[in-house]
Design a protein around this nucleic acid. Structure first.
Length: 438
RNA sequence: GUGGGUAUGGUCCAGUUGGUUAGGGCGCCAGAUUGUGGCUCUGGAUAUCCUGGGUUCGAGUCCCAGUACCCACCCCA
């Protein structure tokens, strides 16, 4: 016999067994349903694009992590997020789109970085973005958290907190300290405070060249704690006159007000001045979402506002705002902490089993009739012993087995067995259908 | 890119100071039970012990190199 090829997949890539894929798809369905509920339109862009398009803006990290290859004369890349393709798409189809353009996209993205726990080279992102033409109402900044609220409420993984901040507040504040040249580095450092602690942030900021006075003021700002209103009050009492700061503060106040009007309870969001988001294209409101009981999972949904995402593809100024759920990571983490657990290995509600092959015609008819009523039905076609047939149903976790033997066929009835309870009854097909799908 | 760890049937693991035919759980196949699954019992199949080299009378075990995978940092979903 010939050598057997070792069956394996690349490291950093994932695939699930059916019982997990079912759960994964259910989460995705929930996300899609809520997105649509808020008026977002579906979009599906190619996974491969021209490198020059995807890398128009890219800086160092992206460039290093992107899967890039040649095919014929083309320099191609796999998309590493859904935002850049959206920018390209919006600019390309500008004339045919209705603005503000609200789109959702659930799709795989690729990053050739070193994989580790909760970190993959191919993974699903579930994004929504709204792109405005020239301007984009601040109300959208409150709608984003409303979407997050509905999704995580429905997913039901316990209490969660949407943490929000505004980059203008940070930028304006840093400007008053004369730090405008190091803003990106400072943001990156303070963003890590949850992970590395205040002392390490202090030393890293000092290392960056900030004066002790500046470090103290930064830590004082980002250390502001308390409920939403007291933080807003505290920010006002800093008496900062920088106009960017004041603009950010004004936006934040309005966003909070609108979030409340949209019905997000106060204990589901919190102002957090440490949230910066690594990405440098954010310019206004930024979000992060954490599960209160599992803070170690990090942010399960994040995003923010950007002024001009499409700048590389069109002269039109197109501000936008969006959020993203890293579904593959989220799912793998939820599984790890036991928040999602596989129940059944199939979606089938009833297995139709002929006791002998003479009953196959009745079984085919019965299956068709049940499917007509929307019941998910599987038929056991294989010629096997009764034990095998039952085992098939049992192993897949099919809740009902509908059997037709000589006696049942003669009476035009079926034997319906409840697999969980082990009970069995002889019924008409209509009665059986009512039991399977009450 | 930097640092650490692991590698034994399909899978998860055990394997003593180096010693004869490398064990077990789960899974798989068959039977006890050809109109009834889960539980139990009985039997069975499946391993170049990651690869290459070295030490030794003898290596799954010790040494060297390589490879793969995992974890952490960086960065991020």
């Amino acid at each position: 016999m010939a050598d057997i090829m070792q069956p394996r997949i690349l490291t950093g890539f994932v695939e699930f067994l059916p019982e997990d894929q079912i759960l994964f798809n259910q989460m995705m369905d929930t996300i899609r349903r809520v997105y649509e509920q808020f008026g977002f339109l579906p979009l599906d862009t190619p996974t491969i694009e021209l490198s020059e398009v995807l890398l128009a803006k890219a800086g160092g990290e992206t460039e290093k992590q992107i899967y890039r290859f040649r095919k014929g004369d083309h320099d191609l890349s796999l998309r590493f997020d859904l935002t850049v393709p959206l920018a390209r798409y919006t600019a390309q189809h500008e004339a045919d789109l209705v603005f503000p353009f609200k789109r959702y996209q659930l799709g795989k993205v690729f990053r050739g970085e070193r994989p580790q726990k909760g970190r993959f080279r191919e993974f699903y992102q579930c994004d929504i973005d709204i792109i405005g033409s020239e301007n984009l109402s601040l109300f959208y900044d409150a709608e984003m958290p409303s979407v997050i609220y509905h999704i995580f409420k429905e997913l039901d993984f316990g209490p969660f907190t949407i943490r929000l901040n505004n980059r203008k507040i940070l930028n304006g504040f840093f400007r008053t300290l004369g730090l405008q040249d190091q803003i990106t580095e400072v943001l990156r450092i303070i963003d890590k405070i949850d992970k590395i602690g205040e002392a390490n942030v202090r030393s890293e900021l000092t290392e960056l060249g900030l004066s002790e006075e500046a470090v103290n003021r930064v830590l004082q700002l980002i250390g502001m704690k308390g409920d939403t209103d007291s933080i807003l009050q505290g920010l006002e009492q800093l008496n900062i006159t920088d106009e960017v700061f004041l603009e950010g503060l004004g936006e934040m106040k309005q966003v909070v007000e609108n979030m409340r009007l949209l019905g997000i309870p106060d204990d589901y969001f919190r102002l957090d001045l440490t949230i910066a988001r690594g990405l440098d294209y954010y310019t206004g409101t930024v979000y992060e979402t954490i599960l209160n009981e599992y803070p170690g999972l990090g942010s399960v949904c994040s995003g923010g506002r950007y002024d001009n995402l499409t700048g590389y593809y069109t002269k039109q100024q197109m501000p936008g705002i969006g959020i993203s759920i890293g579904l593959t990571r989220l799912f793998s983490q939820l599984k790890e902490v036991g928040l999602v657990k596989a129940q059944r290995r199939t979606l089938v509600e009833a297995l139709v089993v002929p006791l002998g092959k003479e009953q196959m015609p009745q079984c085919l008819k019965a299956a068709a009739a049940l499917r007509e009523q929307g019941i998910r039905v599987d038929v056991f076609y294989q010629e096997k012993g009764m034990k095998q047939k039952m085992k098939y149903a049992s192993r897949l976790g099919i809740p009902y087995v509908l059997m037709i033997g000589e006696e049942e066929a003669a009476e035009n009835k079926v034997a319906l067995k409840n697999m969980d309870k082990g009970e069995q009854a002889v019924l008409t097909l209509e009665e059986a259908a009512a039991v399977i799908r009450p």
